[in-house]
Amino acid sequence: MGITLTEKAADHVRKFLEGRSNAEGLRLGVRTSGCSGMAYVLEFADKIESEDKVFEDHGVRVIVDAKSLLYLDGTELDFVKEGLNEGFKFNNPNVKDACGCGESFNV
């Protein structure tokens, strides 16, 4: 298992990372908050911590801390367009239910 990226997502992440000088990769995570218990974290990673797991897909380094990985294992990160809006989407098989917009979720 692990974390994967769609080609589209990888293209965008690579583009965004290009503009940064000291980025190690992309950090994915979860934290407790929000109306349904947990929320996703999507950040640039400037350093890798000892408890982090590092995956590589389509030439992009994805960094996830061990705790978050429990909730994210098997997730595919996608990049989609909805009308004028565009952004990243977590396809996470662990999610049981989510709030209306899907920004916070439960496993």
Binding site: L26, S33, V41, A45, G87, C101, S104
Partner: peptide, 17 residues
């Protein structure tokens, strides 16, 4: 679900915030 953007390290917003 809502579409997410990549935040600066440590700056991820709370959901709906």
């Amino acid at each position: 679900m809502a579409l997410l953007q990549i935040s600066e390290p440590g700056q991820s917003a709370a959901p709906h915030q």
